[in-house]
Amino acid sequence: MTEPARPPSEPVAAAGDDAVDRALVARWLAGDEWAAAALVERHAQALARFAASVGVRDDVDEVVQDTFVRAFRSLESFRGDSSLRTWLFTIERRLVVDRHRSARRRRDQADVPDADAATTATALDGMVAEETERRVHQAVTELSPMQRQVFTLRVTEGLSYKEIAVIAGTTEGAARVHYFNAVRAIKERLDA
């Protein structure tokens, strides 16, 4: 197996960079198109990871692009109650849910997300180099969709329970429960 291409650095936009995002949004609203490119560059990778974690397979790029298009169409309505990244995750999650529903109607399948998750695990396993990382990743992909979503946002993206609750459409308490259940399930998988 070849060594996977790791990101050269940590996220372009770390959590806590809300002020930078707000400034870029203001510049874009004022007509500066370069601000849009900067915003995309800051958040595209995180959105791609999240899309993969919730079961998007081959068309991650398309989902990320649609997320940005939707976001920029309504960027004037972004009030900054949450961080921009949380808002983008929320839009992307709705988008993925809509796509799953459409796919389910077309294919008359009962539970597309779980089926996608299994396929995603197979497809992405090859990208993980180390055995331990591969096993952890495999265990994550076998979580329930909600657990996987919460665990990914909490661990991979470093979001707070409050932010996760907004994205997942749940409460902070429920997000915390999902997280601890996910950690327990992963440990059990690794110990098995």
């Binding site: 996977p4 990320v64 920029f72």
Partner: peptide, 29 residues
């Protein structure tokens, strides 16, 4: 480990393609 694994599977994104698909605002510079 989970964080590293999550970052390792970051799918590639085409920044230029995404930016080119974004809506333009009137009077964009």
């Amino acid at each position: 480990t989970a964080r590293r694994a999550g970052w390792a599977v970051t799918p590639p994104t085409d920044i230029a393609a995404i930016v080119s698909a974004l809506p333009r605002r009137p009077g964009m510079v």
